[in-house]
Design a protein around this nucleic acid. Structure first.
Length: 497
RNA sequence: GGUGCCGUGCCCAAGUGGCCCAAGGGGACGGUCUGCAAAACCGUUAUUCGGCGGUUCGAAUCCGCCCGGCACCUCCA
């Protein structure tokens, strides 16, 4: 298995190619994180899940992963066509919105949404980065980088800020195809800013002594440009050249293009040897937006009764290089599949506890399926095939669920453990701290349900099936489904999904 | 105008030159099991891959044109 490699589509060369590591066996990986001005939505999480699957697959083939994902808490502006002339910071804008009224200042707002983000992250079984740097904690490094770029002739200062001169870096446009030449041909009307030499020049530092978040620099009070943080933090924690850099498809241009320009101008070395970008998530066939009411966050789905693992499953059910359509039906399908993994997990646990001495009848088949799933993942993260193989394994287990030997139970456990490590869909991996989200399940009266179940059991024993069915029907109307088994009656909260 | 992507069964979605008369999930239908229900398991459900032409011994996969959809071109994951 150490012979395996991880093949991924590279945005720069536009082909699928193996990840080549600078340091054998150690993947240096940077993934752009969220701007914490609101709750992250499920589209954000599709991108973060792509990074998570890279990490899991890399670990499964025996690599260690140095993974860094940042928190953007300053400098990301709302409208960049006028940004360099004075667009508003996303954080400041959020503070003024209705949701922002509960916060005393932008710092509190950032902290609140960062905490919420970390909770959602943990609920979806995403691997933790070894460091999650914040832009605001790396001011010094960003200021130094801007100064160095000026010294080296790649940037210049004006009365409004420090700008990177796109013409000074000949590789500009190599990632996105948006070379200066192509940009000049764009028909789009842009607001000209007399403070810059070229329209495409982007800000490394914005001078602004009225800004809600400002720092002192040799250029005066102000704040750093959005692109600079990633260049600086990636270099600081992972070195001059990364093995892999990831993000959403919208980041190809301008964000990553600008990162490349800054970093390579600064170091004279390639910034990243491989680039992956996750295509956008559509919701019910449309672009997700607050306006059309199809804007889903992790917590809004939990409140509707979704299992966080099902959200994860639905978001990784399609391959990251293609747009994925997230639908209510898809989430509901995912709920059913997650149930299958959980039932298999329970069957295996039962076999380990009470299984007989018979031979292991499923180990060979399960090992084969795991290998196929891993192969699929190493082939450009083919999650659709990997999930198909993973599900086949549950069928192998369920087929013999009533009669699994202890030895089979051990094989089953090993299989589910490995599938969970690879795909993260069998069980929650971490306790989630923080305020509980109110779900349908947290609102039911458990004692009353148990009383009705007991009554029904008595009725069944007395062959009073009419009363037993009545109770089933009554609870069903309240959204509670009863499930009889040899061990007794369980219940689950039915969801509206 | 520039750059890139996609169109596979009722729905979601793999497959990108022969192993494909096309995975897997959902749905539907039939069966086993069950007081009922659920779950589980078994079986059936695309001679066909947006349309038309072409290349090839061979095409869902390559090429051309057309139709339809999407993304980016300084808000966005």
């Amino acid at each position: 298995m150490s012979e395996r490699t991880l093949r991924l589509y590279d945005t720069m060369t536009r082909q699928v190619k193996p990840l080549e590591l600078i340091e054998p066996g150690c993947l240096r990986f940077y993934s752009c994180g969220p701007t914490v001005y609101s709750y992250a939505h499920i589209g954000n999480f599709r991108t973060f899940l792509t990074a998570d699957l890279v990490i899991r697959t890399a670990e499964a083939i025996g690599w260690t992963v140095k993974y860094v994902s940042n928190i953007t808490d300053v400098g990301h502006l709302t409208q960049d066509d006028v940004a360099d002339a004075g667009g508003e910071d996303k954080m400041a804008s959020a503070l003024k919105s209705k949701e922002g009224e509960q916060f005393n200042n932008v710092w509190e707002l950032a902290e609140y949404y960062e905490d919420a983000f970390r909770e959602d992250w943990a609920r979806l079984n995403l691997r933790e980065p070894f460091v999650r740097p914040r832009a605001t904690q790396h001011m010094r490094e960003q200021i130094v980088a801007a100064e160095q770029l000026i010294e080296q002739g790649y940037a210049y200062e004006t009365p409004t800020g420090v700008y990177f001169s796109v013409d000074s870096f000949k590789g500009y446009g190599k990632l996105s195809g948006n070379t200066q030449e192509n940009l000049r041909k764009a028909v789009r009307e842009v607001v000209l800013d007399d403070n810059k030499k070229e329209q495409a020049d982007f800000a490394l530092w914005k001078k602004d002594d009225k800004h809600l978040m400002q720092w002192y620099s040799p250029f005066g009070w102000g704040f750093p440009g959005w692109h600079l943080e990633c260049s600086v933090m990636a270099r600081m924690y992972l070195g001059d050249t990364l093995d892999l850099h990831a993000g959403g498809e919208d980041l190809v241009f301008p964000h990553h293009e600008c990162e490349i320009a800054q970093s390579e101008a600064l170091t004279g070395k390639p910034f990243s040897n491989h680039w992956i970008h996750t295509r956008f998530l559509q919701v019910n066939g449309e672009k997700m937006s607050k306006r059309t009411g199809n804007f889903y966050t992790v917590r809004s789905l939990l409140e509707k009764g979704a299992d966080p693992l099902a959200i994860r499953y639905a978001l990784i059910s399609g391959i990251y290089t293609k747009p994925l359509n997230f639908t209510d039906q898809g989430l509901s399908d995912a709920m059913g599949n997650i149930e299958r993994f959980k039932r298999s997990d329970a069957a295996v646990a039962a076999a380990l506890e009470n299984g007989g001495d018979g031979p292991d009848t499923i180990g060979v088949a399960l090992d084969e399926l795991y290998e196929q799933a891993l192969d699929a993942m190493t082939n450009d993260l083919n999650t659709s095939v990997a999930l198909a193989k993973a599900l086949e394994g549950t069928r192998v287990i369920q087929r013999e669920a009533e009669s699994l030997s202890k030895a089979s139970g051990e094989s089953g456990k090993r299989y589910l453990d490995r599938i969970n490590a690879l795909l993260g869909i069998v069980r929650p991996e971490r306790e989630v701290a923080g305020p509980a989200v109110v779900t349908p399940a947290s609102k039911v009266d458990e004692a009353r349900i148990q009383a009705l179940i007991d009554e029904r059991a008595a009725a069944k024993k007395a062959k009073n099936f009419a009363r037993a069915d009545e109770i089933r029907k009554e609870l069903d109307a309240e959204g509670i489904e009863l499930r009889d088994s040899p061990e007794g009656t369980n219940w689950v909260v039915k969801t509206a999904l």
